[in-house]
Computed example of a mutant assay.
Amino acid sequence: MKSPKIAFFPGSFDPFTKGHEDIVLRAIGLFDEIVIGIGHNSNKNRYFKLEEMQAYIEETFKGKPVKIISYQGLTASVAKQVGAKYILRGLRNTTDFEYENSISQVNRHINEDLETIFLITSPHLAPISSTIIRDLHKYGSPIDEYLPYKLKS
């Protein structure tokens, strides 16, 4: 019996944007299951509560072959724990590629069975970043058009 193709999509997702949703929706056809991992980055303080973000993401993908977890530790190790042989990453631009390429090399060194799959962000979503959305929200600008869910606060 062939093992399922599982992709691990890691990130801080603070917040999870329409750009992130786009990557997952496009990847659903490539994999049997996608595990979205909300990572704890010790260099970042979360703006949106992790538990709330996890609930928003679960709501977004209800009925789809997507599982949401939160995790601490090395992404390559967590990918192995969840049975993923693929890391899924979205690229908006060449800056993202330079950063993600380095990380993918280290992940492969830690877990030699791990392949990183890069999907190019759809052009109309490329300008969206979690950092920009946090700043807009912090200063009172509406952000609903950038999110695949409605904030409850």
Rank of each mutant, 00 (worst) to 15 (best):
F13I: 04
F13A: 04
F13V: 09
P15A: 12
F16P: 03
T17H: 08
V24D: 02
L30Y: 09
L30I: 11
F31E: 01
I34E: 02
I36Y: 02
I38Q: 05
G39N: 09
H40R: 02
H40D: 01
N41A: 07
S42R: 08
N43L: 08
N43C: 01
K44D: 08
F48S: 09
L50A: 05
L50I: 05
E51M: 00
T60K: 01
F61P: 01
K62C: 01
K62S: 05
K62E: 08
V66H: 02
S70H: 05
S70A: 02
Q72H: 00
Q72K: 01
T75F: 06
T75P: 09
S77I: 08
S77C: 01
S77D: 05
V78D: 04
G83N: 11
A84S: 07
K85Y: 12
Y86W: 14
I87C: 11
I87A: 12
L91G: 09
R92K: 13
D96R: 10
E98R: 11
E98N: 13
Y99C: 09
Y99G: 07
E100Q: 14
N107S: 14
N107Y: 14
E112Q: 15
D113G: 15
D113H: 13
T116Q: 14
F118I: 15
T121E: 15
T121I: 15
T121N: 14
